[in-house]
Simulated assay, not measured.
Amino acid sequence: MPTVPADTSPAHRLRERLAPLLSLAATRVDRRLPSERDMMASLQTTRITLREALNELEAEGCVYRENRRGWFVSPPRLRYDLLACLPFHEMVRSQQRSARTLLLSAEEVIAPVKVARRLGLAEGERVYRICRARLVDERRVLYVEHHLLPRCFPAILDFDLARESLTELYRREYGIRVGRVSYELGTCVLSSDAAGALNAVRGSPAQRITRINHDQNGRAIDCDDEYWRHDAIELTLSAAPQGG
């Protein structure tokens, strides 16, 4: 069997020389790498080669970039257990991390086609759309768009949606609990809205998680489109095999 030649490209060789900088940055509170200009000077390389090496590391989830702030070493991933169905803040805090939510917008809109299909709505029916950015240890890692049925949750937009858990609001104010969740998983790139919310570069890789929530009576009541920085989470799922 022929031997696969080792990667000897300038970017690959530079990655080895970047390792000490990554190790040092990982010990800093903000985990920030030196500026590209400083790295180019200290490593005696070109911007093209440096960017290629950093982009490779970003694709592997080792580093990430923020607009107008530079490059950072990625922190440990958050474990996202699909079966646990924990609210965001509860999931994050259970892993001894800090969580915060920013409300970006909350309004009533005509349901987009894909949302109408998920919720069994006719063309032109309206939904509540709530857009939020969510932070782990003060890093923006998640942009989420919620679409809710207004008839199930009248006046829900009047609540403090930056502080309140929707799941808790459903139970406390409307007597509705989530009885079943359907997931759609996929990879994508960040749109302008998602990238802006996460201080990321448009087109950066992302993990998409779509949830369709059904109430205790089996009725579809809302759906969420979550767009995570791809290095921020590790999806987990435990299930008992069926049959022999």
Score class of each variant (00 low, 15 high):
55 N>I: 06
56 E>G: 12
57 L>S: 04
57 L>M: 13
58 E>A: 15
58 E>P: 00
60 E>F: 06
62 C>R: 15
62 C>V: 15
62 C>N: 12
63 V>A: 07
64 Y>W: 15
65 R>P: 01
65 R>Q: 13
66 E>S: 11
66 E>L: 14
69 R>W: 06
69 R>H: 14
69 R>F: 03
70 G>P: 06
70 G>E: 10
71 W>I: 07
72 F>T: 15
74 S>N: 14
75 P>R: 15
78 L>Y: 02
79 R>E: 15
80 Y>A: 11
83 L>Y: 01
83 L>M: 13
86 L>A: 15
87 P>Y: 01
87 P>I: 02
88 F>D: 04
89 H>V: 13
90 E>L: 06
91 M>W: 01
92 V>R: 09
92 V>K: 03
92 V>P: 00
93 R>L: 05
93 R>G: 00
93 R>C: 10
94 S>Y: 03
94 S>V: 10
94 S>H: 10
96 Q>G: 04
96 Q>T: 06
97 R>C: 02
97 R>K: 14
99 A>C: 00
101 T>E: 09
103 L>E: 14
104 L>Y: 01
105 S>L: 11
106 A>M: 01
107 E>L: 01
109 V>D: 05
109 V>A: 00
111 A>F: 02
111 A>G: 09
114 K>I: 03
115 V>S: 02
116 A>I: 06
116 A>M: 05
118 R>G: 10
119 L>H: 04
119 L>Q: 02
120 G>H: 09
121 L>H: 05
122 A>P: 00
123 E>T: 11
123 E>I: 07
123 E>Y: 07
123 E>A: 13
124 G>L: 00
124 G>T: 03
127 V>P: 00
127 V>Y: 05
128 Y>H: 08
129 R>Q: 13
129 R>E: 09
130 I>M: 04
131 C>E: 05
131 C>A: 14
133 A>G: 12
134 R>M: 06
135 L>R: 11
136 V>H: 04
137 D>C: 03
138 E>D: 15
139 R>M: 05
140 R>F: 05
140 R>Q: 12
142 L>D: 07
143 Y>M: 08
144 V>M: 11
145 E>Y: 02
146 H>P: 08
146 H>D: 12
146 H>R: 04
146 H>I: 05
146 H>G: 07
147 H>R: 05
148 L>T: 04
150 P>H: 03
150 P>V: 10
152 C>N: 07
152 C>H: 08
153 F>A: 03
153 F>I: 01
153 F>V: 14
154 P>N: 13
154 P>I: 13
155 A>C: 08
156 I>K: 07
157 L>W: 02
157 L>M: 12
159 F>V: 03
159 F>E: 12
159 F>Y: 14
160 D>F: 07
161 L>V: 09
163 R>Q: 07
164 E>P: 00
164 E>G: 00
165 S>Q: 06
166 L>V: 09
166 L>A: 04
167 T>I: 00
168 E>S: 08
169 L>F: 01
171 R>V: 02
171 R>H: 07
172 R>K: 11
173 E>V: 03
175 G>N: 02
176 I>A: 02
177 R>V: 05
178 V>C: 04
178 V>P: 04
179 G>V: 09
179 G>T: 12
180 R>Y: 08
180 R>N: 01
180 R>D: 01
180 R>F: 08
180 R>K: 09
182 S>C: 11
185 L>F: 10
185 L>K: 10
185 L>N: 06
186 G>Y: 00
188 C>N: 09
189 V>T: 13
190 L>P: 07
